[in-house]
């Protein structure tokens, strides 16, 4: 239900219902995050000014300045509101927001992205899948390897073979391998 309903009875509780659920506590790290966003917004506002200044209404920098200004204002308001709130009791940053498993997975992902180009799609993806499933699922190596190989095979088939998305080849000569299979198939047909 929304406040544009021309139903005045519903209007009253809508105001608080739809938009503002002011929490009375803040989560761990939230205050810091608002400050970070505010600082980033201020920096972006400066960058926006740097594009073309107040050159013209149609200048490439005009709308970016308006946008970043809005970010600064709302960011400031959010920061102000958040800082006034007491921190929620019994929660810690390292448990509720950034537990070790999250950090490990994020690092795995980062490693995956970094190694994708030099190592190539197949070996990196296989490593990523095996390591992360092993870590999260805590099952035997057999099942882990089977699942990751199967997943990888399906993704490779759909993206690489059917849709010809050229994933980075890296150290594994997969393009040549594919051509070999195609030649075999083609030769057989």
């Amino acid at each position: 239900m929304s406040p544009t309903d021309h139903d005045t009875d519903a209007m009253q509780d809508d105001v608080t219902d739809l938009h503002e659920h002011p929490r009375d506590t803040r989560r761990p790290g939230e205050a810091g995050f608002t400050i970070l966003l505010l600082l980033a917004s201020l920096f972006l506002l400066y960058s926006a000014y740097d594009i073309s200044g107040f050159e013209a209404l149609s200048a490439p920098g005009t709308l970016p300045m308006v946008t970043t200004l809005i970010m600064c204002l709302t960011g400031g308001l959010i920061a102000l509101r958040t800082w006034k709130l007491p921190q929620i009791a019994g929660q810690t940053f390292s448990r509720e927001i950034l537990p070790p498993v999250l950090i490990v997975m994020a690092l795995l992902l980062l490693g995956y992205a970094l190694a994708l180009k030099p190592l190539g799609f197949l070996p990196t993806s296989f490593l990523f899948l095996t390591l992360s499933i092993k870590l999260l699922w805590r099952q035997g190596w057999g099942r882990t390897l089977a699942i990751s190989l199967l997943t990888l095979a399906i993704i490779y088939l759909v993206f690489r073979v059917i849709f010809s998305v050229l994933m980075p080849a890296g150290i594994f000569p997969e393009a040549e391998m594919l051509q070999f299979f195609r030649n075999m198939l083609g030769g057989g047909a």
Binding site: Y112, L116, S125, F128, I133, L136, I147
Partner: peptide
Amino acid sequence: AVLIPMIMLLSVVGAY
């Protein structure tokens, strides 16, 4: 535990 790594892999491949 299996779905999450799969989603992540698919996200990377999809974005690429």
